Simulated scan of single mutants.
Amino acid sequence: MASDLNSPLPDGNYSGVSYYQGYRIQEIAGRSGTDTTTGSDTAQRTWRVTGSASPQNARAALTDGPVLIDEYDGLFIESLSYEQGPSYDTWDFTASYNAAVPDVGGYTVSIDTTGGQILQTTSYGQTKFAASGTTAPDYYGSIDVQDGKPQGVQRIIPALKLNARAKIATEYIPSVMGYAKQVASLTGTTNQSAMFDGEFAPGTLLFAGASGDIVAENPQLTFTFLASPNVTGLTIGDITGISKAGHAYLWMLFDYAKDPTTGLLISKPRAAYVDQVYGEADHSLLKIGVAAT
Results as ranks from 00 to 15, higher is better:
Asp35His: 07
Thr34Arg: 09
Val17Gly: 07
Ala166Glu: 03
Lys287Ile: 10
Ala100Gln: 11
Met177Asp: 15
Gly33Arg: 01
Asp11His: 05
Gly65Thr: 06
Ile173Met: 06
Thr94Pro: 01
Ser54Trp: 06
Ala43Leu: 03
Glu199Leu: 15
Asp4Leu: 12
Arg270Tyr: 09
Val215Trp: 04
Ile118Arg: 09
Asp4His: 12
Ile25His: 01
Glu71Asn: 06
Asp4Pro: 03
Gly148Val: 02
His247Tyr: 03
Thr235Pro: 04
Pro102Arg: 01
Tyr107Met: 07
Ala194Val: 11
Thr46Ser: 14
Leu285Arg: 15
Leu265Ile: 09
Asp147Leu: 10
Ala60Met: 10
Tyr139Glu: 01
Asp144Gln: 11
Met252Tyr: 10
Thr36Cys: 01
Asn13Gly: 09
Gly241Phe: 02
Phe196Lys: 02
Val274Lys: 00
Gly212Thr: 01
Ile214Met: 07
Gly237Thr: 05
Gly106Ser: 13
Asp92Phe: 08
Ser87Phe: 04
Ser52Met: 02
Leu119Asp: 09
Ser32Tyr: 05
Tyr19Gln: 10
Gln182Trp: 02
Pro229Glu: 07
Gly279Asp: 15
Pro260Met: 03
Asp73Arg: 10
Thr38Glu: 08
Arg270Pro: 00
Asp4Tyr: 14
Ala130Gly: 03
Gln44Val: 12
Ala164Ile: 15
Leu226Lys: 09
Ser142Ile: 02
Thr134Ser: 12
Gly125Phe: 09
Gly233Arg: 03
Ile242Gln: 05
Phe200Ser: 06
Ala131Tyr: 09
Thr235Gln: 11
Leu160Ser: 04
Thr122Leu: 07
Leu286Ser: 05
Ser132Gln: 11
Thr189His: 11
Ala216Pro: 08
Thr42Ile: 05
Trp91His: 08
Pro229Thr: 10
Asp144His: 10
Ile69Asn: 00
Ser123Asp: 05
Pro8Ala: 08
Ala58His: 00
Ala164Gln: 00
Ala291Gln: 12
Gln126Met: 12
Ile168Ser: 02
Gly289Gln: 08
Phe196Asn: 08
Arg48Ser: 09
Thr42Asn: 02
Ser79Phe: 00
Val290Glu: 06
Ala136Ile: 09
Gly12Gln: 12
Gln56Glu: 11
Pro10Ser: 13
Pro219Phe: 02
Arg270His: 11
Gly105Trp: 03
Ala58Glu: 04
Leu80Ile: 10
Thr135Tyr: 10
Gln56Met: 10
Ser193His: 14
Gly188His: 06
Asn13Lys: 14
Val231Trp: 04
Val145Tyr: 03
Val104Tyr: 05
Tyr256Asn: 13
Thr108Cys: 03
Asn230Phe: 01
Ile239Thr: 06
Thr204Phe: 05
Lys167Asn: 10
His247Ile: 09
Ala169Met: 00
Leu62Gln: 02
Val176Ile: 13
Pro86Asp: 15
Thr224Val: 11
Ser228Thr: 14
Ser15Gly: 06
Pro260Gln: 03
Gly279Thr: 15
Ser211Asn: 15
Asn218Ala: 07
Glu171Met: 13
Leu119Pro: 00
Leu119His: 06
Asp64Thr: 09
Ala208Met: 15
Gln84Tyr: 02
Asp103Trp: 00
Gln120Ser: 14
Ile173Thr: 10
Leu75Gln: 01
Trp47Ile: 11
